[in-house]
Write a protein that binds this DNA or RNA. Sequence first.
RNA 1: GCAGGGGUAGCGAAGCGGUCAAACGCGUAAGGCUAAGGACCUUAUGGCUCAGGCCUUCGAGGGUUCAAAUCCCUCCUCCUGCACCA
Length: 909
Amino acid sequence: MPKYDPKVIEEKWQRITEERKPYEPDIDTSKDKVLITVPVIYPTGTLHLGHLYTWTRADMYARFMRMRGFNVLFPQAFHMTGGPMVGLSLRLKNGEEKAVRMMKDQKVSDEDIKKFSEDPVALGLYFSDSYKNEFTKAGISIDWRRLFILSYTPQYSKFLEWQFNTLKKKGLIVQGTHPVIWCPKEETPLGDHDRLSGEGESPEAFSIIKFTVDGYVLPAGTLRPETIFGVSNLWLNSEVKYKKLTMEDGEEWITSEQFSKKIGYMLKNVVKEESFDVHRLIGKNAKNPVDNQAVPIFDAEFVDGDVMTGVVMSVPMHAPFDYYYLHKSNLLEKLPKKPVRVIEVENEDGIVEASIKKFGDGKEGLDEATKYVYKKELSSGLMNSNAGKFANVSVDMARTDVSTMLEGMKVLETMYEPSGEVTCRCGAKGVVKLLENQWFIHYSDRELKDKMISLVEKMNVFPEEVRTQFATAISNLEDKAAARHGGLGTPLPWDKEWLIEPLSDSTIYMAYYTIASIANKMDANELNDDLFDYVFLGEKRADASYPEEAEDMRKEFQYWYPVDMRVTARELLTNHMVFFIANHVAIFTPDNWPKSISINGWLTVNKQKMSKSKGNTYGISDFVERYGADPVRLIGTASDGLDDAEWSTNNTNSVYQKIETLMDLTEILSDFRSESGIVDDYAKSKLNGIIKTATEAYSNMRFRTAVQSSLFESMQLLKEYLDFGGKNGDTLREMILTIIRLNHPVFPFVTEEINSILDGKDMLETYRSWPDFDESSARDVIESEFSVVKNTIDDIRNLIKMLKIKPKEIRVGIAKKDSFELYNKIVSEVKTTRDVNEIRKRVRSNSKIVDKLLKNKSRLPENKLDSDTEMNAFEQAKEYIARIFECEVRIESSEDEKAIPGKPALKIA
RNA sequence: GCAGGGGUAGCGAAGCGGUCAAACGCGUAAGGCUAAGGACCUUAUGGCUCAGGCCUUCGAGGGUUCAAAUCCCUCCUCCUGCACCA
């Protein structure tokens, strides 16, 4: 008995692969091509099982397509752009314990760690090599000749310059101002990962409305400019420090000290800054810019200098805080006139008062009440006549319209604040900064979006539900800042101060795969826009000179492009994938737009979610070492859809067993010499169904379904064949060979081994080895009758259990021929009606069989049966039944009324 | 807040109008096989049933239908993404 030893087999086939290079395809016009890609990956640490999940899915598809006779290219590139590499290097330099330990866990030497701490690129190159090795060991069939590294390979940088110049020519690069969360100490944008706290917080716009008093401007901060018509007074807090800021245009603003520090980031120039005692203003009347009405200035302890400007406009009829404090402090009577309502909400008169009652008048209660009122009034409020010409306008609309009007009057400006508190890793509190002259890719372009949608509508998307997610992501798409300072990257060709940022330099790089093996060998200076215009767009300029490689590159691109299948995890869907689509439709002709995208979920191993930060990642190499690459690759079949895929190491066990069974059978194949019989027809018919299911499943990236039929169901069938006395060598060989091949995409090494033993040939996917299915060999009646046999065995088992006897003889009585005729007549009738009385009328028979068959409406017979086949099937299974129950079994024709087609009469004695 | 997707047996997960007490896998139990075993095989795994049967189940409630886990409505509940950051 051969023992399955993954190590021996895998080393052998890796050696052969190394020699014959089946994964390094060249142009072959006799074959259709398939280009499969997975996104670039940051080489910052060893690969874990989560990676294997995605890459195995791509690889299974690659192998499947090779076996079907396609010329398959599966390249891979790496990514060094942006912060991760530099960040990690910096952390090592600072001797950050966690980072150093992570390196040591990955068996990086002290010497190398030191090197990495000085040179982020060295770190990237080190892990690039290790990734290549790990992927190869795991049997991922990548063409490494085409490897390149973003922000490192100089030839690729030239390609990237071409991409950006092309976008610019098409008017898809725009310059503008953009708010970001900013660390004032480190002078850098604060991404989610740079934050100590405040992940997910983003810049939030608010309005300042300029009230005036004594020639000073009081810039009141508000989220609800439409309530300007209901302002009764202003609040300042005499316990907060205020400043007088002299602006460029001469205006003198009174704001909290805190705001004075932030205003510089809002592109406002403050010429002079002085302390200011607000007691000078409290009690005076300011002027409301919208109607010139006098609004008194009151002192209020609840005004927070950290929030907006430290100047608050009071709208008592629509803001619980204002309402509550005015009443509490008896300031109400000092108002020149009664506060007015400007918003009406149906069935919610006195909404403010009611909400305070409901949520309470403590700080928290008032906060809740505020939220409630804001939300209610925004969703269903209408402005009333106090809002002048905005009467009967919805609050939602009025907010924009009033803003526009006030902006026109130069009394409103828009500013930003973080939506919540953000702290930088360095400890500084994050602010919002308006970044000037930032370069954007103009993703919000109407025409571009229309093209994207048209692509998403027609491309293959697996699973299907992702399509709507793409559509919504596209419609929400805004312009994207495409360049930044710091980190690694390629300079923008026309503004070298800026580096192209990582989500923008990795959108159409798959086109570079097609030419990588040529371009990587060239002098980067030979690669210019003219050349790329020709290679990728077919536009040749009369006055330009082209290097001799130009024709070959053009041919490579024309042959291999577009991307036929792009595989990735869910996290990249709304960003990378969307930008991938956008840039393709922007730059390439429609025939070079991507054909299919397949998205998978996360992987959980032994119930734990993989996460680098939690330190519970399982390295690929460890697992491959321990279980062998083939069994571990089962991971790729963990789920069909977008759900998190649950994977347990236990799963490898059943793989071992099944492989050993196949190896055993292969070895003793020559012992099977009997003629073929009905069970052979049965096996072939079922096998055919399995091929069909598996082929469709693989085609649609449904690998869980694929493996269920090609591994589990097929092994079950093999067992059934042997159980039912199948002994024909040819059938068995065909079954094993088919099973082996259906499973090759999942378990490439061991299936190759068994195939070579059986067939004398190596698959290596270089010839068309995928089994075909043949509709004509489907034998429905035989399959049905074998189901009858299986059901009958269950029945016998049941009966024996109930009778509590040890049977000496079992007699299986097959119904007589005319019963079968009646049965099949009913089956045909059922296809047209489910009305039992109608069926009864049509078959016109008094037989008790009709009563029995029609007894249960929801279980009417639906598959045709045949008396001879039923008899033969039972004859075939007779020995098996006898073996199970250890007694005599007789198959006979029966007159007994209990003998129904599909349900033989049983006599157990 | 906005958008998308779920809730099925101990667990993971199929099914998406009728062969559904519900595939498949894992786990568990009993028996078997081995010198031994991480292994493997058989059977069982909602409840009740001593002749192949019946009853109750697919988040909760209501409805449509001869027939609903599957279609419709309401409610409860869980998850994921939201951009300058890979």
